[in-house]
Amino acid sequence: MFILVTGGSASGKSAYGERLLMECPEEKKAYIATMLKDGPESLRRIERHRNLRAGKNFYTIEQTHKISDAGKQMQEGSWSAILECLSNLAANEMFSADGTKRESHAIEEEIITQIEALYQRLNTLIIITNNVFEDGISYDASVMEYIRLLGRLNRRLAERADQVIEVVAGIPLLLKERKEP
């Protein structure tokens, strides 16, 4: 089962995704964290998410780049996982700390291939992404390229997904459900 969860910032999409993971029948559950520890704000957010999932018995895997490597940390057995979140992963792959930027179409193909590889290792994959597309602001060219990259990734993953859910004020809205043949 491949599930894509989207929503605005602080919409409750993470909490909803984690609830889905809790309900997964697989015995082993991985929380794949993509956020870079690069400042007090990100440490604060990481701390908040840690508290959010405390006591849920998730196995945390920190994977800021090359997401398929997260699968290598999973031992024998049947796994489900949540990837938190695609928008961080895409930013990490696109922008380097030294201010350089990679071409977005190559990154798009890489991330899709790596997510496919990760999914091969899993029974259920829940991907959290972000709705950053509706503020109408013309950011500088590199930010616009990032926004378009995330848009393309979301569309390809939504097409691939069995279920796509938008979370609004904590309420899940079903955008797509693949009917079993």
């Binding site: 597309f133 509706e134 378009r148 995330l150 848009g151 393309r152």
Partner: peptide
């Protein structure tokens, strides 16, 4: 007339 709205890069 038909109207389609949505964020940038949503297809």
């Amino acid at each position: 007339m038909e109207l389609y709205i949505g964020g940038i890069a949503q297809g």
